[in-house]
Design a protein around this nucleic acid. Sequence first.
DNA 1: TTAGTACCTCAACCTAACTTGAGGTCAACA
DNA 2: TGTTGACCTCAAGTTAGGTTGAGGTACTAA
Lengths: 146, 146
Amino acid sequence: MSDDKWSVGQVARRCGVAVSTLHFYEQKGLIRSSRNNGNQRRYKPDVLRRVSVIKAAQKMGISLASIKAAFASLPEERTPTMADWRKLSAQWQSELNERIGYLERLRDSLTGCIGCGCLSMKNCPIYNADDRMAAKGSGPVLLDQG
Amino acid sequence: MSDDKWSVGQVARRCGVAVSTLHFYEQKGLIRSSRNNGNQRRYKPDVLRRVSVIKAAQKMGISLASIKAAFASLPEERTPTMADWRKLSAQWQSELNERIGYLERLRDSLTGCIGCGCLSMKNCPIYNADDRMAAKGSGPVLLDQG
DNA sequence: TTAGTACCTCAACCTAACTTGAGGTCAACA
DNA sequence: TGTTGACCTCAAGTTAGGTTGAGGTACTAA
């Protein structure tokens, strides 16, 4: 595999992440590497896209676990094509739309609800907005608990 | 203060949070209580609104630290009025608008960017979208690092 | 040959927002 | 009387997404 030519440092600089982050992603199964004679990691060029996609997805509020799950739909045996990546992004786009919709509903009921007397679990639109989507990938906060 | 009549259990049930969460919020300075003869917490009725507002703000992606800071603008000496609460919500509404705008920009560049070859730190609109707001309150992820 | 990087592993630490558990108090009810 | 149930404190554990540090290896350049 003379294909594997990127070192961790190079990938880190190119993608704007720390070397330790790449180790971490590898440990979590989000990226893969081979080793050279001196036991150093060597990456195929597509790792750059993977890391970029991870960063982009995180900005959307998607967790590493979900990103890993999405990556599972990429082909194992060959380098992912643009079409493969586009499929991923399409999936996230609708998730993003739901999240945006949720935040818009929240915004629209916000002043009314915080300012009025209705802020109770039973009646308030804020409590009763569909927050299933918002709960995903928002870190440790269990948003849809209540 | 015969005003302080709510027990933790009552507040917890009414607001849909765990008792331990109320202890936690108190420890973090987000809510306050007095004690009865048996050393049990007793809350003023406005704690209900505070907890509700905390939950609502969290759904917007606002951290407890920011919520605490916002609560600092509420009057200490008297029970907050609707006008006080409205001021809070107005502040968060614009924050929410910025967050929504950010996610919309992200969505609009998503398919193009993940699917095309531009996903690099220098050229990509995703990387260069203004993500200052998105970084706030999104958990431990340092979004605006790169 | 020696210094300087870049790299390696593994374990421990960090923050946010809580939860869980151990061990103890207090009041009401049968 | 005793046993529930609600409450108390304090310490430790949990998850996500990493970072930091110690101790060691490997290539490069003077």
